[in-house]
C-alpha cells in the first residue's frame, strides 16, 4: 500500500479536552550499522470516552506507538503529551510517576504476579496508584469484571480469560484516565475475547480513554476511531472501514 503524501488529519470528537496528543512523533532504532524506523511522523489526539483501536500487521509499529503513549519508550522525534503532561523529555523519575498516575496497561500475556491471588493482583494496581482503600477498590473491580467469586485464586488456578479479566481489573483499579491494551485478546478464544472487549468498551464510556492495539481487523469494528499503521506510519485514521458494529455481532 503506498503511503499517503499528506499527514492524516485526526478528526476530533465533540469534547475539547485532549488526553493523548502525539505531534509528529518518530522513533528510530539502531541495529548494528543499520537504522530501523519504527515510527515516523505520527500525530494523533485521543479524548476522554474514546475507544481507539490501533490496527496494523506485525512489525508495523503499533506496539511502539502504544509504548510512546505509556511512557515505556521515548520518541526520537516529535512530542508526546499525555494527561496534560509532556512526557517527551521527562526524567526517568517523572516517567515512573506518570505511569503510576497517568496510564494503566493490559497485556497480551496478562503479566500477572504468580505469587499473588486475583484480589491481590488487582489490589496491586490500586496500591501503586496510591488509591485510598485499595482492597475495597480491588474487590469492586473484580466484581465488575465478573470475578467476585475468584478473589482468592492464584493465576495458575484461573483460565486465560479469567487471567485477562484480572489484568483488566488491575488496570481499572489504578483509576488512571487512560487504559492501554496491547493485543488483549491475542491469547484468548473468541468467546473470551468478546467478553474482554465488552469490558474495555464499557470502561471507555466512563470518562476515560481506551487505546487497543491489535492486528485483528474485526476487533477494530468496535472502535470509535481506528488508527491504521503500516511500516511505522499512520495510513488511515477514521471510523472502522467496514462499519462499526456491536460487540455481540463480532465474528473472527
Amino acid at each position: 500500500m503506498p503511503l499517503p503524501d499528506a499527514r492524516p488529519v485526526t478528526p476530533a470528537p465533540a469534547t475539547d479536552k485532549v488526553l493523548i496528543r502525539l505531534e509528529q512523533v518518530g522513533r528510530r532504532y539502531h541495529v548494528g550499522d543499520s537504522e530501523v524506523v519504527a515510527l515516523a511522523d505520527v500525530s494523533l489526539e485521543v479524548r476522554p470516552e474514546e475507544l481507539v483501536v490501533v490496527l496494523g500487521p506485525s512489525g508495523s509499529g503499533k506496539t511502539t506507538l502504544l509504548n510512546m503513549i505509556g511512557a515505556l519508550d521515548s520518541p526520537t522525534e516529535g512530542r508526546v503529551v499525555v494527561a496534560g503532561q509532556d512526557i517527551t523529555h521527562a526524567s526517568r523519575k517523572e516517567l515512573f510517576a506518570f505511569r503510576r498516575h497517568g496510564v494503566s496497561f493490559v497485556f497480551q500475556t496478562f503479566n500477572l504476579f504468580p505469587a499473588l491471588t486475583a484480589l491481590e493482583n488487582a489490589e496491586f494496581g490500586a496500591d501503586v496508584a496510591e488509591r485510598p482503600d485499595p482492597r475495597t477498590v480491588a474487590v469492586e473491580m473484580l466484581e465488575r469484571v465478573g470475578l467476585g467469586d475468584r478473589l482468592g485464586h492464584f493465576p495458575h488456578e484461573l483460565s486465560g480469560g479469567e487471567q485477562q479479566r484480572v489484568g483488566i481489573a488491575r488496570a481499572l483499579a489504578s483509576g488512571n484516565p487512560i487504559l492501554l491494551a496491547d493485543e488483549p485478546t491475542g491469547e484468548l478464544d473468541f468467546q473470551t475475547g468478546v467478553q474482554i472487549l465488552e469490558l474495555l468498551h464499557a470502561h471507555a464510556h466512563t470518562g476515560r480513554a481506551v487505546v487497543i492495539v491489535t492486528h485483528n481487523r474485526e476487533i477494530a469494528r468496535i472502535a470509535d476511531r481506528v488508527v491504521e499503521i503500516s511500516s511505522g506510519r499512520v495510513v488511515r485514521v477514521g471510523p472502522p472501514e467496514e462499519g462499526q458494529v456491536e460487540i455481540s455481532d463480532l465474528r473472527w
Binding site: 504468580p114 505469587a115 495458575h156 491469547e187
Partner: peptide
C-alpha cells in the same frame, strides 16, 4: 499463555 502460568 494462561495454560503455561507458573504455579504459585
Amino acid at each position: 499463555g494462561a495454560r503455561a502460568a507458573r504455579s504459585s
